[in-house]
């Protein structure tokens, strides 16, 4: 990926530019950073003046049964959602980008629609349906609900990679004697693999952080996000920043992983 970037002119305008970027970055990061700082703060009410470090809240969080259960529940949702939405989204992306069929553009619009729908309404709608069709509430309905929202996002991410492949690639493979299995196994899948990995990471992070859909569909099962929300309505406790930071660490780890994959690809000259 060799993209040419504009460089920002003279020395003084350069400083203004970097200063601006730093301020924006700070503005975006402060809530997250303060959360992390608070999670290590030894005391009930956070104060920056008289800071004392402790790992106690993490200890409390990890030893609490209800928090551990919330983590396990979240994993029970996120892992299947990641696998299934990656399969569904990749298939849809390949269909949209690599095949001609009637109403192809309408297919894309309808498939991507859930992304742009307010999550709080999507969750509400799903919740109404879940009781109507007797699906009920719990982990499985949460998985199904998240799939509706996350699969289109995977489709979107994989489509970006798939659109970059020479449109003659499949025909060339067929022409050289490849059957459908060979075409997918040796040509198409390797070419979209990077997009699929990115899509899967997206899927996991979005599912891991999801609140609205699970809040409507998880019923008696609490996930980390619903646990945090529930805990906060009962009043603040410093365990909350620790739990929230734990979610954040997992997400940031995956994002860093995605960046590493991207950089490694650049190094191999692709």
């Amino acid at each position: 990926m060799s993209t040419r970037t504009l460089s920002f002119g003279g020395r003084s305008s350069g400083w203004i530019w970097y200063g601006y970027v730093t301020l924006v970055a700070l503005f975006l990061m402060i809530p997250l950073v303060s959360l992390v700082i608070a999670s290590f703060y030894d005391g009930r009410f956070f104060s920056i003046v008289d800071y004392q470090f402790t790992l106690g809240w993490y200890n409390a969080a990890l030893s609490s049964g209800s928090i551990r259960r919330a983590f396990t529940n979240t994993l029970f949702i996120s892992v299947p959602v990641t696998v299934l939405s990656t399969i569904i989204g990749t298939a849809a992306a390949l269909a949209y980008t690599r095949y001609e069929f009637p109403y192809r553009e309408s297919f894309k619009l309808i498939a991507l629609l859930p992304i742009f729908f307010p999550l709080i309404l999507l969750g509400l709608g799903m919740s109404m349906w879940a009781s109507q069709i007797g699906l009920g509430y719990g982990l499985v309905p949460s998985i199904i609900g998240e799939l509706v929202w996350i699969s289109p996002i995977v489709m979107f991410v994989v489509s970006i990679t798939a659109l970059g492949i020479d449109p003659n690639t499949e025909e060339a493979a067929r022409d050289l004697g490849a059957d459908t299995l060979t075409l997918y196994r040796r040509v198409l899948f390797p070419l979209v693999a990077d997009g699929v990995v990115s899509g899967a990471i997206f899927a996991f992070v979005l599912s891991w952080n999801n609140y609205y859909i699970v809040s409507y569909l998880s019923g008696p099962q609490s996930t980390i996000t619903t646990w945090i929300h529930g805990r906060m309505t009962q009043g603040f406790t410093p365990v909350v920043p620790a739990v929230a930071s734990l979610i954040f660490y997992v997400s940031i780890l995956l994002v860093v992983g995605a960046i590493v994959i991207e950089y490694r690809k650049d190094d191999t000259g692709e």
Partner: peptide, 11 residues
């Protein structure tokens, strides 16, 4: 066997 205008090598 067809040689494509874009060559369509497998990248």
């Amino acid at each position: 066997s067809l040689v494509f205008q874009s060559w369509a090598l497998f990248p």
